[in-house]
């Protein structure tokens, strides 16, 4: 994906104070980082804030990047993942409160996700239907545990190989594979349950 020499040169220029080089890095990697954050955090606003935080962290620690130790994209993804873990820990209490609120509202309305989908009139347009499916999968992804979620995001959405994922997550390759399998299976179970109710 990245030419090691080109990226190393870009980073060197950046460290030397070349603003254009930094702008190029931001333009190259913002989409990827935003997508990782969006799929993990589940919200566009959170993803935007987290992406900015990732780049601020990158900007401050760019001098610590050593191209002999690994690819730049792995380094960037590691920073992203660490910030996502921090964010997850920080917002744990909020999520507990939110889930309690959601549970209460679910009791009141007695309308789970499958019924919400069912209530909507079937859109004739395939594009709209595809968007709906994407939203359902995205919502289901947010429900699986964070360890499994990050593994499947990096593998199936970011196409990273197992070795790179193992470096980012700091776990052995066998654990990475196991997490990916369990994550995929859990997601499928969630979606099958949802669509079985819809059908």
């Amino acid at each position: 994906m990245e030419d090691v020499q080109v990226v190393a040169m870009l980073v060197r220029r950046c460290i030397a104070g070349d603003a254009a080089a930094w702008e190029e890095i931001v333009r190259t990697y913002n989409r990827r980082i935003y997508n990782i954050c969006y799929r993990f955090a589940g919200s566009g606003d959170d993803a935007e804030d987290l992406t900015q935080e990732v780049f601020i962290k990158m900007y401050r620690t760019l001098a610590s990047y050593d191209h002999t130790k690994g690819a730049f994209i792995t380094w960037v993804t590691t920073i992203t993942r660490n910030l996502l873990v921090d964010h997850f820990r920080k917002t744990k209490q909020d999520r507990v409160t939110d889930s309690m609120d959601t549970a209460a509202s679910e009791h009141e309305d007695a309308q789970p996700l499958s019924e919400q989908i069912q209530d909507q009139s079937a859109p004739p347009d395939a594009h709209v239907r595809s968007r709906e499916v994407s939203e359902t999968v995205h919502a289901a992804l947010a429900r699986i545990s964070p360890e499994l979620r990050e593994a499947v995001i990096l593998r199936d959405l970011q196409d990273m190989d197992y070795k790179e994922i193992a470096t980012v997550l700091k776990v052995p390759e066998g654990t990475v594979k196991s997490r990916i399998n369990r994550g995929r299976a859990e997601l499928a179970r969630l979606l099958q349950r949802t669509y079985r109710q819809v059908m």
Binding site: R31, Y34, N35, Q52, S134, V137, L157, N181, L187
Partner: peptide, 27 residues
Amino acid sequence: AEAEAGRNWLKGLTEVEPPAGLVTKIL
């Protein structure tokens, strides 16, 4: 079967577009 299905669901997800002013905000 579940793992294959899960992978297929995930592969169906497309990349989302970042907000318009994100690069400007980052810089």
